[in-house]
Amino acid sequence: MAILEIKNLTKIYKNKKKAVDQLTLTVDKGDIFGFIGGNGSGKTTTIKAVVGIHNINQGEIFIDGHSIIKEPLTCKSKIAYIPDHPNLYEHLTGYQYINFIADLYNVPTSKRKQRVQKYSDLFAMTPALNHAISSYSHGMKQRTAIISALVHQPKLFILDEPFIGLDPKASYLLKQVMQECVANGGAIFFSTHVLDVAEKLCNKIALIHHGKLIASGPTETVKGNQSLEAFFMEVQNI
């Protein structure tokens, strides 16, 4: 069953640049879906349209059957988004920030305590969450953003370049969390430049080039006999 459906998405910026052109793809429950493309190919624009940050010029986006245009709040309550640069409220402490996000998603106190405890321990952030975010490294901010996203247990986890700035242990843990989310009936949609990770982790991938979808489907089908890197390079030379 589809948890994310993008139909004929077109996004044109005010400077007339067509960032995404007639993009159509589907993410089903249980998918770990890798969204691959070069710099400026339209990955982040697509993601921002899906999470309700950008409006769209044409097409439709459905999350769990709800339209992001017509029912933005219902859609947003089902997703968690982590951008490539997790700019968080620097004056808050980690705990205050996570609690703020939990409030916005109406997470009951008992559940939020249990989840914060679980994920802050898992990502080795428990002592650091007492400190102001302004004192965190990039990786710590990324981990705080991940914990805050997990605190409301989203059906769809959308991540933009999630592995940038994470140390090997945190990367490993994030992959574990992704698997856990999928096992619980959720889905993951993430963009990445790390092709090795995409190849090993994703059951489905989509490749975007100059705003147009080049290929989409099960990883093995899309890349064929060659490596994902070779396939990617082939597309870049089109």
């Binding site: 705990y95 205050q96 609690n99 939990a102 916005l104 009951p108 939020r112 914060v116």
Partner: peptide
Amino acid sequence: SSKYRSNEKKVLKHRSPFVAL
């Protein structure tokens, strides 16, 4: 950076979205 510390027990408390904002 600030030396400010918060208390987890006091912080993790449910409020309405408006109050949180």
